[in-house]
Amino acid sequence: MRALPFLLVLAACKAEDDLDLGDPPEELELPDLTGVDLKAAYAAGLTTALQADTRVAWNAHVATVAMAEPGCPDFFAGTPDLEEMDVPEEPAWSWADHCTQPSGRTFGGFAWWQNDLAVTGDVEDAEGATSEAFRRIVADGVVAGADDVVAYEFDGEASDSLMFAEGEGWSQWTYSSLLDGTMTGTIPFDPAAGGIVGGYRAEMYVRSTGGDAQTVEARGNVYWFEHRIAERFDSVAVNLLWGAPDSLAPEECPLEPRGWIGLRTEDAYWFDIVFQPRFDDDPTGDPYQNIEYSPCDGCGTLYVRGLEQTDITVCPDLSFLWNGGLTHPEPNDFALSIRDQLGG
């Protein structure tokens, strides 16, 4: 749409000046997708995107804080004395150092964190018990073993919050997470665990609910340093909103989400599958000029580098989201006190 005035001007100029525009552009040659299970690839892409949350960063942070020894790293009350570091100036604990422990383990950089947990009520009461928890970590630090193998490195910020209510025979929860940073190391990405290896750079927001209503909202992207989907996709980008069939309004589509999922090949081709429009002014119209949005059939419209592919239909099974695919951290996971470690 935006290109139309430009094209008109261009056409006018061409008519008057007979400009030589050179050779016509080469036709885009699409990567060979023979043998690629796109249904499984998109399901795997969505799964790994949703897993890129604050839990990964926090759990590794807790593990490395437990490795602290007197003097290495140095703990700080509040913000460490670092120049040119964008660290919040709020009540918190932090560590900052460049040091080596007797074992050879090294700490370099800093990590700053806040966390809180409050439980009220009683599970056995009619109103049940409610846990409200929050945590946040800002870091540019690395912890490595004596063999120089990185155990945990995080450069960025992660925060999440949980509301978990439970009573006799019922529970409901809301979990939201924002992860924006680069993370590597054998603690968050244990090669023996069979999951993602090597780490990633992520900018992901995920909000999910469970219990009486199962919903998920996700937007952002993840680039894996080593992990690949279908041996060729190195990144995923999502912007979607969906709910379980029994959690949707009658006019909403239970077969597919609103929004889209994109997978990128190593040679930078984005393969985007566009489902139901995300909003009234849905982004699927920009850059995708698909006037006819995907019908509610469980299938999406495939675009490669923004070009609609009419000969390929992708109908990924994303129902795993409503069968244990959405999880939340336990309230107790938000507890971290270093008073014991500080001694005194």
């Binding site: 080596t100 370099g108 590597t184 680039y223 500080l342």
Partner: peptide, 27 residues
């Protein structure tokens, strides 16, 4: 992107544990 290198310290650092909690002695 995959640069996980950092200014890691040589692993032959002679340790000096002060034996006291969180005393700021150069280790």
């Amino acid at each position: 992107d995959a640069d996980t290198s950092a200014d890691l310290l040589p692993d032959d650092t002679p340790p000096e544990d002060t034996g006291e909690p969180w005393e700021f002695v150069d280790t």
